[in-house]
Amino acid sequence: MKEHVQELLDECLSGATDEDLLILKQLLEGVKRKKDNENGSIIGGIFAMEREVKDGNFEISIPITPVTHNSLQIVHGGVTATLVDSAMGTLANMVLPEGYGAVTTNLNVHYLAPGIGDRLTAQATVVHQGSKTIVVDGKVISSDGKIVAHSTGSFFIFQKKR
């Protein structure tokens, strides 16, 4: 396996542009962050997610890089959705008692502006917490303060297996 990965890496490096090298660097740094437990998932590692509890809400921020771009050189809508779902889902799990988890059952994203600038930050706030579901409100904001997307999500609460 290691030999195959090395061959693939060598092939990707051969004739790589500066942008290709930047992308490879971010992907490899993401794997390292996951391996070093700096991020809990490979998605968090690759997108270099930084998490913060701020003013009683939860935020996740990512840099805007070629890894996040679509063919129009703006942040791909799926990346925006992943960012806001990660923020809302993490918050939903944070408010639960030990031994319980929550998973997304519905995600509604309204795209309002292009994802441009240096960073995107997703903010999440609990709207309702019941015994079976949690409803969370989310916003994605660009580094210039524009709201890129508004989202709501429903999360099903379950007891984790022991």
Results as ranks from 00 to 15, higher is better:
2 K>E: 07
4 H>S: 13
4 H>P: 00
6 Q>P: 00
7 E>W: 08
8 L>G: 07
8 L>M: 11
10 D>V: 11
11 E>P: 05
12 C>S: 10
13 L>R: 13
17 T>H: 14
21 L>F: 09
23 I>Q: 11
26 Q>I: 00
29 E>P: 07
32 K>M: 05
35 K>T: 05
36 D>S: 15
37 N>L: 12
39 N>A: 14
40 G>V: 05
40 G>K: 04
41 S>A: 12
41 S>G: 08
42 I>C: 10
44 G>C: 02
45 G>F: 02
46 I>L: 03
46 I>W: 09
48 A>R: 13
49 M>D: 06
49 M>Y: 14
50 E>Y: 01
53 V>D: 12
54 K>Y: 11
55 D>S: 10
58 F>D: 01
59 E>I: 10
59 E>L: 11
61 S>T: 12
61 S>H: 06
61 S>L: 14
62 I>M: 09
63 P>F: 11
66 P>C: 02
73 Q>C: 00
73 Q>A: 14
74 I>R: 00
74 I>L: 04
74 I>Q: 06
79 V>T: 14
83 L>S: 12
83 L>E: 10
84 V>A: 12
85 D>T: 14
85 D>I: 10
87 A>G: 15
88 M>P: 01
89 G>N: 02
89 G>P: 01
90 T>K: 15
91 L>D: 07
91 L>F: 05
93 N>A: 07
95 V>F: 00
95 V>R: 04
96 L>E: 09
97 P>R: 08
97 P>G: 05
99 G>E: 07
100 Y>A: 03
100 Y>G: 01
101 G>T: 05
102 A>N: 04
103 V>T: 11
103 V>D: 00
104 T>G: 14
106 N>S: 07
106 N>C: 08
106 N>A: 07
107 L>S: 07
108 N>V: 08
109 V>K: 09
110 H>I: 09
110 H>A: 14
111 Y>C: 01
112 L>A: 07
113 A>K: 01
113 A>G: 00
114 P>Y: 00
114 P>V: 05
115 G>R: 01
117 G>T: 02
118 D>C: 03
118 D>G: 09
118 D>A: 14
119 R>P: 06
119 R>V: 14
119 R>E: 15
120 L>Q: 09
124 A>H: 06
125 T>E: 15
126 V>T: 06
128 H>M: 10
129 Q>N: 05
129 Q>D: 03
130 G>W: 10
132 K>N: 13
134 I>Q: 03
136 V>I: 15
136 V>F: 05
141 I>R: 04
144 D>H: 11
147 I>K: 08
149 A>I: 00
149 A>L: 06
152 T>L: 15
153 G>E: 05
153 G>Y: 03
154 S>T: 15
155 F>H: 01
157 I>N: 04
158 F>P: 14
159 Q>L: 07
159 Q>Y: 08
160 K>P: 03
162 R>P: 04
